[in-house]
Computed example of a mutant assay.
Amino acid sequence: MTDTTTKKTKLTDEQIAQRVEAARARAADKQAEARECEDALAVFTGETIEREGLTIAHFRSRTLTPFIAAQEHMGGVSVAYRHKRANTFIEIATAICRDDEVFNRKLGRQAAVDQFARGRVIRVPLYGRAAADVVAEMFDNVTISMPDHTTFVVNH
């Protein structure tokens, strides 16, 4: 029978400091790696979008609220999509702006393109239709319902 108990190891202050320093160095390496990845994705704009054959479309929310005029600039969806000629599918990546956020086309475009670059896409069949028509059918008239607390009762 083997003894499975472990001995408590007493570390000196110097050994503890070395281990802490090694852990910090590993964390710094991971952060640098993440920054490099983000920088690589940030380059995926402008000319790259055109070279990759991406099309960007923006769809605004149709908000159901008593204060429609006050909510017109809120919420929406930015879509990056690509249709390769020899394919009967389109690849779609999206960036969704919540209904309590101001919709910004530039940020939505970048977020959707970043999603595409990371491979976070869905493939949708065209069934003989144009890619723009399929995307418009999926995202046009996006409706985001407001919570119940926006319903008001007026007492006379």
Rank of each mutant, 00 (worst) to 15 (best):
S145P: 01
V113C: 08
T150D: 13
A80S: 06
G53M: 07
Q15S: 10
E47V: 09
R51V: 07
V135M: 03
T88L: 08
R62D: 13
A132D: 13
V134H: 06
V43E: 15
L126P: 04
N155L: 11
T55C: 06
T63M: 13
I90T: 03
G75T: 10
M146V: 05
Y81Q: 03
F139T: 07
C97R: 03
N87E: 14
T2V: 11
H156C: 06
A93Q: 05
R105H: 10
T5W: 01
V43T: 14
R118L: 11
E47Q: 12
G76Y: 01
L11I: 01
R109D: 10
V154C: 09
K106N: 04
T150A: 03
A69I: 02
V113W: 04
G128P: 04
A23Y: 13
Y81D: 04
R85M: 06
A23P: 01
D133C: 02
M146L: 11
T94P: 01
Q110R: 14
V142R: 12
L41S: 06
D13S: 11
K30N: 10
I56G: 05
T5L: 10
R60I: 06
A17N: 11
Y81C: 06
H73T: 08
R120E: 12
V77Q: 02
R85H: 10
K30F: 02
D114Y: 03
V142G: 09
L64A: 12
R85W: 04
T9E: 13
L126M: 09
A112Q: 07
S78R: 07
E50D: 14
G46C: 05
S145A: 12
S78E: 02
I96E: 09
I144C: 07
G119M: 03
Q110P: 00
E21S: 15
R120M: 08
R51S: 08
F116Q: 01
K7N: 12
T150S: 06
T65S: 15
A23H: 12
E52D: 08
D13Q: 14
K10Y: 09
E33P: 01
A22M: 07
D100Y: 13
N141I: 06
A28R: 15
D133E: 14
I96C: 03
R105K: 13
T55W: 00
V142W: 07
A112T: 04
D140G: 02
E50H: 12
A32N: 13
F59R: 03
T55Y: 02
R60M: 04
P66I: 08
D133L: 08
V113I: 15
L54M: 04
H83S: 07
K106Y: 04
E33Q: 14
V142I: 06
R19E: 14
F103R: 05
D13H: 05
R120P: 00
Q115A: 15
P66F: 03
D133I: 06
R60T: 12
S61C: 14
G75M: 09
A136N: 12
D29H: 10
H149N: 14
S61K: 02
T88N: 15
R62T: 12
E33H: 07
M138E: 02
A70Y: 07
V134R: 08
T2D: 11
E47Y: 01
L107M: 10
E101C: 10
V20A: 11
H156Y: 04
Q115D: 05
K30P: 01
V20I: 15
K30I: 12
I16N: 03
H58D: 07
F103L: 05
G46K: 03
H149W: 14
L107T: 11
A27W: 00
